[in-house]
Amino acid sequence: MINLLYFAGIRDLTGVPEEKAPLAGRTVGELLEWAEEKYPGIRGGGARVAVNEEYALDGDVLEEGDTAAFIPPVSGG
């Protein structure tokens, strides 16, 4: 299973801060498609995905036990 984390405006959209999904072996791009189907609009805001606390590319493959976080545009400072 892959641990999914949602933050800020994306968490408002999903309604949950985290969940697990059977996406091991899938790419980050496929994760985004899966998420868009479940939560329409999640890709619209320019969110990036971080895998195990590093920004990931669409082609990166998720491995069992990975944590993938949806990072909406940041606004620190």
């Binding site: 800020a8 320019g46 971080a50 920004y55 976080a69 545009p73 940041v74 606004s75 620190g76 400072g77």
Partner: peptide, 28 residues
Amino acid sequence: IERIKQDVPIWKKEIWETGEQWIGDQNK
């Protein structure tokens, strides 16, 4: 500070008298 505003996963929500909003990508 420029790098923090690009990459560090921190989010600000502004709360006004009339509502509230998550702020993202202020440069855009």
